[in-house]
Design a protein around this nucleic acid. Structure first.
Lengths: 262, 262
DNA sequence: TCCTTTCGGTGCGGTAGCGCGCATATGGTG
DNA sequence: CACCATATGCGCGCTACCGCACCGAAAGGA
């Protein structure tokens, strides 16, 4: 957060994969927004106004139960987008989207998306493909929740998050990870301890560094591999063009934020 | 299975919701197939040739792990269709689809679906809406797997299955349900015993009867309600036309079957 | 500098669900 | 009618995880 980043639409793989003509139509309407940690892009059952394309932020989809406990269903970064409901035909979902790693995203008003969608072109195809990958990820979360230990799930979570970042460290507390996985903080502590003792990660007060990624993958359950493989298969785009865009004074999206994790 | 059923395309809600012109284009290509218990419509990572529209059968999507254990991700009956991957842009998925309650389904060759899909009309919209409902169901499975007891999950499962049948009895053993929920058979036995003692269900050797549905709903976790509500919201179609079609000597789809549950 | 808040580490009793082994009933088949 | 495969019931020890309570250390604000 110290050095000014230089977000550009093409950092998002979906935006980058569009052909110039589609980009020409859409990019003028893109709005760059800053996403602080814990901000909510969508709340459960509230109308959705934009579709978000993360560049260097990570957002997770979660379901919040009646008693307040939550579970993350998937992780979305620069490989994807948020707001699939808008083009799938609904207006809201029972899930919410929370920023899990601060950063930037471009967003497009609902109307523009629907407009472009109705042209039945490239954007439609891309979005559907991405939705398919998302379904795989949610499915695998279900499987993992049923069959695997917290240790394995932590590995999966770290890997999924790392894949969406350009560096090897994550800013999140164990309490936070517990909320994501839907387990106790103490459970995460135990799992993290084991990983640290094995030299796979190191951490301190909300900063986690991955030291040995191959080992992390080995310790993870098959779920990570399945999701990764399927995503790569589905989202194997054209090579991405590089465009340099310098930006300044980017607004923070007017979003509600989760207080402190209780 | 004693009395000959009279399947008709309109028993499937999605087919019924199509306007006559679309029906006119598609129905000539519909093929009625019989789906025996435990038949596999799709196997993991195998090419998919048809889209299936169940009339009175129930099919579940499941993921099979490397060690052979499985978990159901969702239940599909006459409210939906199987093979969303075909129009989402993939050719296969890591999940398989297994018949959970024998019956009939109409199927459409892949090519016809894609053709109609490319017209970007009603079928596209319907399918996307259904996909959204399916995502909700899979998500809720993930939540349920994490947070709820076997007792609650059994209730959810029974309710989801009942909603897709026109009668109040299910033909499935506890062993089978265990495979679906990804839990031990003994766990299901315990849960079923409790339900029977409370007079909510009665069962014997693979035949389960639901005696007190309201109580079943009360004993279920919130997951069932969320899925139901969201589906009703998304799939709230036009009133369905009734057409009587008499059929005879319906072929069984050439499908592989799971041996006996081990 | 002090004080408060946050983060991570630990221990303890309780429980849901697992793996396993075995007993019993029952419906279908020969 | 006899038999057998199948479906269900039950007990036992074990493990992963939970809820709770408490601690110390580090970070950060005043």
């Amino acid at each position: 957060m110290s050095a000014k980043p230089q977000p550009q639409p093409q950092q998002n793989h979906l935006l980058a994969a569009l052909t110039p003509d589609v980009q020409g139509r859409l990019f003028p309407y893109l709005e760059l927004v800053q996403l602080p940690l814990r901000a909510l892009l969508y709340e459960s059952r509230r109308p959705m106004r934009h579709v978000y394309f993360p560049t260097d932020s990570i957002v997770s989809l979660q379901y919040v139960m009646e008693n307040g406990a939550s579970t993350a269903l998937s992780v979305v970064g620069n490989e994807g987008l948020l707001g699939i409901t808008l083009f799938m035909g609904g207006e809201s979902t029972p899930t919410r989207s929370m920023v899990q790693s601060a950063g930037y995203a471009y967003r497009l008003p609902r109307l523009r998306v629907k407009e472009e969608f109705n042209r039945h072109g490239q954007l439609l195809l891309l979005m559907l493909r991405y939705t398919q990958a998302l379904i795989t990820q949610i499915s695998q979360t279900a499987v993992c929740n049923r069959h695997h230990t917290i240790d394995q799930q932590l590995c999966r979570w770290l890997l999924l998050s790392m894949d969406r970042l350009s560096h090897n460290h994550l800013t999140m507390t164990q309490e936070f990870i517990g909320n994501m996985l839907g387990v106790r903080r103490e459970g995460v502590t135990q799992a993290a301890l084991k990983l640290q003792q094995q030299g796979v990660i190191s951490y301190a007060r909300g900063m986690i560094k991955v030291l040995d990624r191959p080992k992390l993958e080995a310790l993870s359950c098959e779920c990570y591999g399945v999701v990764k493989k399927e995503s790569d298969l589905l989202l194997n785009y054209l090579p991405q063009r590089q465009v340099i865009v310098n930006t300044d004074s980017i607004p923070t999206a007017e979003l509600s934020t989760i207080p402190a994790a209780r």
